[in-house]
Computed example of a mutant assay.
Amino acid sequence: MALPFGLSPAASAFLLAAVLGAAVLRGFSGFGFSALVVAVTGLVSDPRNAIAVVLFCEIVMTLQAARGIAGHVDWSRVGLLLLGAAVGVPLGVHGLVSVGVDGARVAISLFILAMCGLLLAGWQMRRELRGWPNAALGVVSGVANGAAMAGLPVAAILSAQPIPPQVFRATLIAYFAVLDTLSVPLMWQAGLVTRDSFVALAFALPALLIGNHFGSHRFSRAAPRNFRRLSIGLMAVLAALGLARGVL
């Protein structure tokens, strides 16, 4: 089977290692997989090549973890996020296909850096945001999902609220699964879903399932704060490298 997107064997091995590490992060924390994989892809190829692939990956990982999260999902919050995302996703997809490769690298890298800064700031709210503010957050998340990065703005806002870790993680995973499923037809129409997208998914599947299983298994045993900060810092470094490549 030919390698997808014209990737070299070295670049393919590099991306498979990134998929494995990102799947561990996602299985553990509930977010970060798409942003990390897209950022790494931007170092060796057009980052837009990874967008449809990571959407399919997110759906697969949710099916793998569904049994363990079902009882913890805040479905009312998920519904409001999706309502806002219905407005934001078409805007994000249109914006992404309107820029060139370097423009996409710069825009994606700047967004990741901004969200990582917000996540690392450690600011906290005294109580949860309920109701329509979640729909407004969904709009922002939907726009970001044009680049398969809906998770970062939602994770940044939800992690600042007094939400139990199990509910935080399960709600993020459920939201991404529904959002990504609804986004695929728009991505297909925009030309972001190709035969190579499915070939890449087939190559990534073993690393994806192993990493997600390991991360989910470690969720109740590791130190969440330290692991999350390390993961966010890694995303920020990769985004900075992608930004440098896009600019230079």
Rank of each mutant, 00 (worst) to 15 (best):
G88N: 02
I112V: 09
D102M: 14
G84A: 05
L118A: 15
V87T: 11
I112W: 08
S98A: 14
H94E: 15
F111L: 06
I108M: 08
G100T: 01
L118I: 07
G88P: 09
V93R: 05
F111S: 08
D102T: 03
G103K: 06
G95M: 10
D102W: 08
A86E: 12
A121K: 05
L118E: 15
H94V: 00
L80W: 09
G100C: 10
V97L: 11
L118P: 08
F111W: 03
L96M: 13
L83W: 09
H94Y: 10
H94R: 03
M115I: 00
G84P: 07
A114Y: 03
S109P: 03
L110W: 02
V97M: 13
G95D: 02
L119C: 05
V89N: 07
Q124P: 14
F111M: 04
V106E: 04
H94G: 07
A85Y: 02
L91Y: 07
G122Q: 06
L110N: 02
G122M: 09
G95Q: 05
A107T: 01
L110K: 03
A85N: 05
L82N: 01
V99L: 07
V78Y: 07
L83A: 15
G88M: 09
V89H: 11
G100V: 00
P90Q: 08
I112G: 08
L113Y: 03
V87P: 10
A86P: 04
G79Q: 02
A114K: 04
S109I: 03
A107M: 07
L113H: 07
L91I: 09
L113K: 03
A104W: 02
G88K: 00
V101N: 12
S98Q: 13
P90W: 06
G95S: 04
G92F: 11
W123C: 11
A104V: 00
R105K: 11
L113G: 14
A104L: 08
S109W: 03
V99G: 06
L81V: 02
G92Y: 05
L113W: 12
V99Y: 07
G117Y: 06
G103Y: 10
V87C: 06
P90I: 00
L96P: 14
F111Y: 08
V87F: 15
P90V: 03
